[in-house]
Amino acid sequence: MIEMLAALNRRGRFAVPLIAGFAALAVTGCGPQMEDQPSLETYEEAMPPMPAGTIARSGGDPLPGDGAAALRNPFPTTREYLARGAALFAIYCTPCHGAGGRGDGLVAGPLGVEVRDLTGEHVAALTDGEIFRTISAGNGAMLGLRGLIAPEERWLIVLEVRARQAAVAPPSGQP
C-alpha cells in the first residue's frame, strides 16, 4: 500500500495533498451520521397537511371560542390526577403566578405587568372551560401556552388551580 502511494507520488506533485485529503476524510467521516437523531427542526412540517374535513381519532386541540365556558374537565379529581396537575403547575404556571398561584413568580417582575392571583375571586368565578381556554389561547397580557403544554396537561393544571383555590378559601358551609 505504502509503496503504491510512494510510486503514485513520484509521478504527480498533487499526490501528497490528495492523500492527506483522503486521510482527513477517513478520519472525520462523511455522509449521513446515525448519531443525528430524527428530531424536528423549528417550523419543520411534521406531517403533510391533512385534507379538509379530517377528523381527529384522539387528542385534538380545539381552541374553544364562545363555547369554552361549557367545556367540562375530562379528568375527575383523583389523587393521581391532582399529583400530576401539581407537577405540571410547578413547571408551567409557577414562573409567573408563583408557587402559591398568588401572581408573585420570579418572571412576574421582568414581565412588567400585574400577574393574576389564581386564588383570587376573578379566576375562582371562571368555569373550568374558561381557565382551559385562557391557558391555551391566553388572555390580556398572558399569551397562550398551547404550543408548550399538551391539551390533557392543561386540563390537569385546571384541577390544580381549583385545588389551590379550595385551599385558600374553603367552600362555604365549612368552618
Binding site: Q37, P38, S39, L40, T42, Y43, P95, V107, P110, L111, G112, V113, A141, L143, L145, G147, L148, A150
Partner: peptide, 21 residues
Amino acid sequence: RGAAASIPAVRDCYVCHWSVG
C-alpha cells in the same frame, strides 16, 4: 412526551419575550 426533548418554536419564546428583555 416522546423521544426528542425538542426546542420550542420561536413564537413560544414570545410567551415571555413579548415583554421581557
